[in-house]
């Protein structure tokens, strides 16, 4: 082929990939170290920092909170996001264009401003419990991903199939669940995974929505790093990476990973 990239470009690209991978390898190495301080290459292999995660109650508690918020927030975002994505595609002509933009706003507005605004109006202003405010924040944070991914898979759906079912006597709601939803299953899985990972890793929105006894895992990691410099955080990081790998393996099996890159 004539368009083979210049060798210098190939070298730069290779170095960029080294730059991307090396820090992650270092975190894994540091997590396996037997020393009480962070070091790489690891000196003596041990898994004791992994068991240490579960001995620190703050980590135990925040892992549970993070998983709860990620599951519930993603679920709620799917519940309100799927009908919205459906409406945007099905009633494209009738609905104004700004409505589509509205659902992208949560990723357009600075996350940290959004978190601060929720603190000011919900927790401080209206006395909403922190867990509820956190859940609302995460639901909105992941809503754009849900609407965008579901819209993308509905774009190729032929709505005349749905009309055929209705004209043949199927109830509209039943038609939605038996005809429309099965056709966007791949999109739903992708939306769930993207939303779940986004919620699990979020810092900026959760930052202001923590309080006595309630915090998320990334916020707890931040707090821990600022006080102690031991390998516990490296092992928590590896745990989070494993979770990501597991989720990615599921995507790869069901959809193929290039789906996420779109």
């Amino acid at each position: 082929m004539t368009d083979r990239p210049h060798p210098i470009l190939i070298i730069v690209a290779a170095l960029v990939y080294v730059f991307l991978m090396v820090p992650l390898v270092i975190v894994v190495g540091a997590a396996l170290s037997d020393t009480t301080y962070l070091t790489f290459p690891p000196q003596g292999l041990s898994l004791r920092w992994f068991t240490n995660i579960f001995e620190i109650s703050a980590f135990r508690r925040t892992i549970v909170t993070s998983l709860q918020i990620a599951f519930l927030g993603t679920f709620l975002a799917l519940v309100i996001g799927i009908p919205a994505a459906y409406a945007l595609n099905r009633y494209r002509v009738e609905l104004p264009r700004w409505l589509g933009t509205l659902f992208v706003l949560p990723i357009l507005v600075p996350e940290i401003v959004f978190g601060f605004a929720l603190l000011k109006s919900l927790t401080v202003g209206a006395g909403v419990p922190i867990f509820v405010a956190l859940l609302i924040g995460h639901t909105l944070l992941v809503l754009p991903y849900v609407v965008r991914v579901i819209s993308a898979s509905l774009a190729s759906f032929d709505f005349s199939i749905e009309e055929a079912a209705i004209s043949l006597g199927s109830a509209p709601l039943k038609t939605f669940f038996t005809i429309v939803l099965p056709n966007v299953r791949a999109g739903m899985i992708a939306a769930f995974i993207l939303a779940f990972i986004t919620s699990l890793n979020d810092v900026s929105v959760s930052l202001f929505l923590t309080g006595p006894g309630i915090s998320t895992l990334p916020i707890q990691i931040l707090a821990h790093v600022e006080q102690f410099f031991d390998p516990t955080v490296a092992s928590v990081s590896v745990l989070l990476m494993f979770l990501t790998v597991a989720v990615m393996a599921v995507v790869e099996r069901t959809l193929g990973l290039t789906f996420l890159a779109k």
Partner: peptide, 24 residues
């Protein structure tokens, strides 16, 4: 029908994002 289906998400974005940031 379109408005009704997108209402929950629309109201959520307006009520929990636009209004709080507007107040700030």
């Amino acid at each position: 029908a379109g408005w009704a289906l997108s209402a929950p998400a629309t109201l959520a974005v307006i009520g929990f994002l636009l209004v709080p940031i507007g107040i700030v």
